[in-house]
Computed example of a mutant assay.
Amino acid sequence: MNRRVPIALVPVLALSLAGCQSAPAPATAPEPTGDGHGAIAGAAELAEPALHLTSLTAAGEIHHLDLLDETSETLGEITPPTSLETDGRFLYAGRDGGVGVVDSGVWTWNHVDHFHYYEAPAALLGDLAGDGEPTVVASDLGAGVRFDGGEAVLLDLDALKKGRIEERFRLDVPAGPGMVVPLPTGALVTDADRLRHVDAAGAEIETVPCTDPAGSIATNVGVVVGCADGAILAVTDADGTAFERIPYPDGAQARALSFAARESRPTVAGATDGDAFWLLDTRERAWTRIDAGEPLARVAAVDDADQHVVALTEKGEVLVIDGESGKALARTEPLVAASLADPVLAAGVTLQIDANRTYLNGPAENVMFEIDHADSARIARTFEADAPAFVAETGR
């Protein structure tokens, strides 16, 4: 089956795509434009998600692999990236001085109790310029960019859906690392010891104590920001946004530095700089520490019925771990050892998790792996690829 639509290969293209995204809380989910759920100009509604692996080479060439029919095409080229973030539709490719924005043209819209799936022309939307190296936080709520030269930017998600890069705000902030974390309305801008809750225009609403913020993820409960002593959970409903602190258990060591999970699930995995990792259940407001017994390069929570967690060892093996007992259920042979041995390539090696599969890229091995985490980490498919330095699963 071939669902191909034309690819728009232009640096900046205004698309008439009023497609919608899911949100962590049903109360904040946007409604689609048009006369009905399928009446979105420029997009076709599908019976199933148009899942793709969108990969970037170190030189900035973008490849789009259809996971249904295994056809691949080149979308174009952007400035060579050093990082990549995605919300499942848009790709944000960062490098010193800017962020290249790509619309993959495939996405899923969450209608609370069911989903709608869309495909439209992919496009290279252009570039967001800034001072220094960018840190991007992207979710269905939008994208925030913190340039370490001292600029904080919140992008306009509605404009992105129409093919335009527009800023909701750009604030001067202290130079150095930090984040701009999108909320259903406004964002959180991190400082060294606090989170500044700002509205969509960048005006400060309130501050929330948070020492050494690091890592953020959106769940179906709320938005998480990691702090030295635990996490802040921002929960938004019709009455506004409330902030809850989820402290680590007494005596906890080695805090979570980043978070990863299947999209919109309540339980997320927090990677540390040691052998252990954390599971944060945002519904129960509880942490669980799991000692893997060996150094891990990546970890992500599947949060399925069997509480699977997928991890990548520093040797390049993929582990499937029982999230309740901490027991390793399955282990692959080393798949991306050469990539992890190269510090530059290792920075782009990621685990992409959905309900049924885990995807892993090996830029040195010139391959992308599809792994069935529910079937003893079986290698379901391998895809030859031209040095996939970064990869994102799109259409989810």
Rank of each mutant, 00 (worst) to 15 (best):
P184Q: 10
P184W: 09
T185N: 12
T185C: 11
T185I: 01
G186F: 15
G186I: 15
A187M: 07
L188P: 09
V189Q: 07
D191Y: 14
D191Q: 15
D193S: 14
D193C: 10
D193R: 12
R194C: 12
R194S: 15
R194N: 14
L195F: 13
R196G: 14
H197G: 12
D199G: 04
D199S: 05
D199C: 05
A200C: 08
A200D: 15
A200G: 03
A201F: 00
G202V: 06
G202K: 02
A203T: 14
E206R: 15
E206I: 11
V208Y: 09
V208P: 06
V208L: 11
V208D: 12
V208T: 15
P209G: 13
C210V: 02
T211W: 06
T211I: 14
D212C: 08
D212A: 15
D212I: 10
P213R: 09
G215A: 01
G215K: 05
G215P: 09
I217Y: 00
I217T: 04
I217D: 03
T219G: 02
T219K: 08
T219Y: 11
N220W: 01
V221I: 14
V221A: 11
V221R: 10
V221K: 13
G222R: 02
V223D: 03
V223K: 07
V223P: 11
V223I: 11
V224L: 04
V225P: 02
V225Y: 11
V225E: 12
G226Y: 01
G226W: 00
C227E: 03
C227D: 07
C227Q: 04
A228D: 13
A228K: 03
D229S: 13
D229W: 05
D229V: 08
A231M: 14
I232C: 08
L233R: 00
A234P: 01
V235R: 13
V235C: 02
T236K: 01
D237E: 03
D237R: 04
G240E: 03
G240N: 01
G240D: 03
T241K: 02
F243A: 06
F243P: 10
F243K: 09
E244C: 06
R245W: 00
P247Q: 04
Y248P: 00
D250V: 08
G251S: 04
A252N: 05
A252E: 03
R255L: 07
R255I: 08
R255E: 04
